[in-house]
């Protein structure tokens, strides 16, 4: 991408120069006000991140994040590596609780209710969200058992239900044709890309309300990527999807909203069209056009 967009370098040079000053200020620890676009305020937020800070031990990884995630939409999280996209995603289903050193302030609401409230059952919370991790992490079991795992732990024993969920999920993850003859072989025998799609299939098997996807396509070839994008397309409206991606075209193609993060701050957040065409902030433009850092 960098090479193909090289010519743009000159046209956006002035932007990146002015952006560099602001980013340097952020790096120096200055507080930033998130540029939150108005069209977001018209949406109903299924997940609402409010003034959220997160520390890994003494190191702060997220700073004052305010981020409503609209219901039934696809939201893309973009930003340079290490800016806290995964951390934010992992905070939403509280999987970050596992990291012993994590400390948080602020709140995240799911349908208006705090996910940190004492009476909230974190297990129930996670059952309502599917998650695809950055690295494929299939269980060392058969393909079939991998996919139906969320149903198994819910106590579903009915073979027909399981079979149906398995096939539907695998089709959704564009994996069915490749594995339909080896459903009962070990998932560890699949290729990296197949494993990632298997994880996607597992995440959607229990039909969660919110689907959190952390770079689901980073290990996939263009065909599979295309299929995953088709899947997201199919799920749009029904499911709320949050996707982390480093692929700007993908973000531009698939998402309704895009959030740009930098060094643990949410810099700008608005509809994808605006973010990619006329972002309010020059640093966003610099980033989405690949002229950055």
């Amino acid at each position: 991408m960098a090479l193909s967009e090289l010519p743009k370098l000159d046209t956006t040079l002035d932007v990146s120069v002015s952006a560099a000053g602001r980013l340097a200020a952020i790096a120096a620890g200055e507080a930033v006000q998130t540029e939150l676009h108005d069209d977001l305020r018209r949406e109903t937020a299924v997940v609402d991140v409010r003034g959220f800070n997160l520390w890994y031990g003494p190191k702060q990884a997220l700073f004052e994040i305010h981020m409503p995630i609209p219901k039934g939409r696809i939201t893309a999280l973009v930003g340079p590596s290490g800016c806290g996209k995964s951390t934010l995603l992992r905070s939403i289903n509280r999987i970050n609780d596992l990291v012993d050193t994590v400390r948080t302030t602020g709140d995240i609401l799911l349908n208006g209710e705090s996910i940190f409230a004492p009476h909230v059952d974190v297990i129930d919370l996670r059952k309502r969200m599917g998650m695809v991790f950055q690295k494929p992490n299939p269980f060392p079991m058969s393909v079939y058992e991998n996919v139906v795992y969320p149903l198994r732990i819910d106590g579903v024993r009915d073979r027909a239900v399981l079979d149906e969920a398995c096939e539907r999920s695998l089709r959704g993850a564009a994996l069915w044709d490749e594995v339909k003859d080896r459903l009962h072989d070990s998932a560890m025998g699949l290729s990296g890309g197949q494993q990632q799609r298997l994880c996607i299939a597992r995440a959607i098997a229990a039909e969660p309300e919110v689907l959190l996807m952390d770079e689901p396509c980073s290990a996939l070839d263009p065909i599979a990527t295309n299929k995953i994008e088709e899947l997201m397309e199919g799920l749009r409206g029904e499911y709320t999807i949050v996707i982390v991606t480093h692929n700007m075209q993908q973000a531009a193609r698939t998402s309704d909203y895009t959030a740009f993060m930098y060094l643990g701050r949410l810099i700008e957040y608005g509809s994808t069209a605006t973010i990619f065409q006329q972002p309010h902030l020059p640093e966003t433009l610099a980033y989405v056009t690949g002229r950055f850092g």
Partner: peptide, 19 residues
């Protein structure tokens, strides 16, 4: 990451441990 996967799928600690 296997534990994370299981917990993220809504498994309890015990289910994760045992399964």
């Amino acid at each position: 990451h296997l534990r994370s996967a299981s917990l993220a799928a809504g498994g309890t600690n015990w289910q994760t441990a045992v399964r």
